[in-house]
Design a protein around this nucleic acid. Structure first.
Length: 145
DNA sequence: GCCAACGTTGGC
DNA sequence: GCCAACGTTGGC
């Protein structure tokens, strides 16, 4: 799950413990969130950063429910087509688990053979995307080196 | 700030 | 349903 650290980064989540992952306005990303189960783990990826890369681990604390920002006309993520009984966009709540012992930067991820087919590269613009078990393990291992 | 990739919108 | 125009994401 990607976020720009200037806006909301791993340290912000560490401080807040649990946060609603709002502002997702892409159907594929939304559908991936809808498929998440409580207790599932996710990487916190810093995008548009210096450098970008995987910063930490979190878990799904609450399964998909309507993203409240879509109902607020003053919010950047306002969605005029949504009504409380027919909401277009969902969010999940995520809980902080850990900051990785070593940040794994994008250029390093790119060089890892296990990540060759990863959605991060094949569907680079998706802000919520699946991680295969072997991809997960390879990244966790790299973070502990 | 630029730009490639790609998702969305809307006319037809 | 196609596709051009446009908007957004995200790396650099």
């Amino acid at each position: 799950m990607k976020s720009e650290p200037d806006v909301f980064g791993i340290d912000d989540l560490a401080r807040k413990k649990v946060e609603g992952w709002n502002g997702v306005r892409n159907y594929q990303a939304r559908n991936f969130m809808r498929a998440m189960k409580k207790g599932d783990r996710a990487f916190f990826y810093h995008s548009n950063a210096n450098p970008s890369g995987v910063a930490g681990v979190m878990e799904i604390a609450r399964e998909a429910y309507p993203d409240p920002t879509q109902f607020d006309p003053k919010n950047d993520y306002y969605e005029p087509k949504s009504t409380p009984d027919r909401a277009l966009w969902d969010q999940v709540d995520v809980r902080f688990i850990e900051k990785l012992p070593r940040f794994v930067a994008l250029d390093e991820l790119r060089r890892m053979p296990a990540l060759k087919g990863m959605a991060l590269f094949t569907r680079s613009r998706l802000s919520v995307q699946p991680v295969a078990a072997d991809e997960w393990n390879a990244i966790v291992k790299a973070a502990r080196r």
